[in-house]
Design a protein around this nucleic acid. Structure first.
Lengths: 249, 249
DNA sequence: GCTTGACCTTGTCGCAGCGTCAACGTTTCT
DNA sequence: AGAAACGTTGACGCTGCGACAAGGTCAAGC
């Protein structure tokens, strides 16, 4: 038999047979005078076993192991392990499909899919075209994807703030500072009002230490032009101060 | 932000971030004087969206598509397609696990897993140490894995032959011819008795044409030493003759 | 005898999504 | 000042072959 014949007989491609030779899974048969590989029925039987095992789902390495110690014992182990692996994959797929089902249900935001916690928060926030609000939403989305899962509590704690209609005016006052200098007189009062609007529940979620020391806080500040940055820094300082007072009282 | 910071913030590895740069998924940020990449919050937000999408199961190409036209419309299509794909995978896994369950149930043969049809046949065949019988089983296993699924009917048709206790004696007479010449006088009578033992049901499954013309028949013959080959060839010819007589009658 | 087409040969690249060196420069802590 | 922990580019590795390149071989038809 030549390679095309044995491949067709067993139901694999010639390329696969050569691949099995290359990785030492199937021994190279003798050659004819013209250099063609000359296969025997033994080879075909072995190749057929390889095909059966790969069809079940074994990797070529596992096939090699199973063929190596030709007791049937190892096969049992490998199959059991494979079944466990498939069961795990099945669970993973089901979980992902559940996530997908939720996402397909919800209206699609332009920021891509969000966690349910954040989606709920944004749902309750009023519609606005304020750039500062948009930036805030981006920052929340970033925190959402940060992966540590700590965002959920924060989002829940922010719910009263989102429902507070006075926040819109504060956002507009922040927008007005986009081109202002760091010494603008509007900074101090706006920061005070913003800090006052933050509900106490949020304080419990704020991480310890100076806010600008953590990478996240510093990076957020860098995202703002000078006057806005001054406002945000003051708000963060004020909140940190409230955390300290609360911790000692 | 430097690369390690943005990676930790979003929850991916630095290597992944560089990979996204390499494939053009995430634009390269400006560099600091020392050559380090300097990331902004914009980059982090974009990277976070990438992470959310890949976590859902999108390929990087699909992520690129979704980010490209930033309507939410394409995302819906991609997600639906992804869900369909996952559903398909889930079915495949379930089917393979069912196959596995059958295999784990049955006693493990040294020839590896067999189709249920062949396993049933070999279950009903008497135990023997005859080399010819072993070779026969190998050939059947080969046919079993040949993949065209045509083996199942043949195996069912062979059931009476397997249960025929006289077959053992015939196998032994075939074994005795292992070293014999092609002109041995025992060839003709053995071939006749073997052919007679083959039940009529088998004839319906034998493929048309001269048996030695098909690759499989010729190859099987080559697997035998001369005298045994002569026997097998005569049996095949005899069966072909019976097929013809049956077809015309 | 010559061409055509269907085989065969070895060797290499490609695929998805990074992990993991290598070999080297920068920053930072002690 | 030295070490540890960052950063840089570049390249190979993993799975299981498919696809191509650049030929050599063989049977059949003209």
């Amino acid at each position: 038999m030549r390679i095309g014949e044995i491949a067709a007989l067993v139901g694999v491609t010639s390329r696969a047979v050569r691949h099995y030779h290359h990785i030492g899974l199937l021994p190279e048969p003798a050659r004819q005078a013209n250099g063609y590989r000359a296969y025997t029925v033994r080879d075909a039987v072995l190749l057929a076993r390889i095909r059966r095992l790969t069809e079940i789902g074994l990797s070529l390495d596992e096939v090699r192991d199973v063929l190596a110690d030709d007791a049937g014992r190892e096969l049992g182990e490998v199959l059991a392990e494979l079944d466990a692996d498939l069961a795990r994959q099945e669970r993973e797929i089901q979980e992902r499909r559940q996530v997908l089902a939720v996402l397909l249900e919800a209206p699609l935001t332009s920021d891509g899919p969000l966690s349910p916690a954040l989606a709920a928060l944004l749902d309750h926030a009023p519609a606005t075209t304020s750039p500062a609000a948009a930036k805030d939403r981006e920052h929340l989305a970033l925190l959402d994807a940060a992966g540590d899962g700590a965002g959920a509590e924060l989002f829940a704690a922010l719910r009263p703030l989102a429902e507070n209609p006075g926040v819109l005016a504060l956002y507009e006052r922040l927008d007005a500072l986009e081109e202002a200098g760091a010494d603008d007189p509007r900074i101090a009062p706006l920061a005070a009002e913003l800090a006052a609007a933050v509900p106490d529940e949020v304080l419990a979620v704020i991480p310890e230490g100076e806010p600008s020391a953590t990478g996240f806080g510093r990076v957020l500040l860098d995202d703002y032009p000078p006057a806005q940055r001054a406002v945000v820094r003051r708000v963060m300082e004020e909140l940190a101060e409230r955390v300290r007072r609360r911790g000692t009282s």
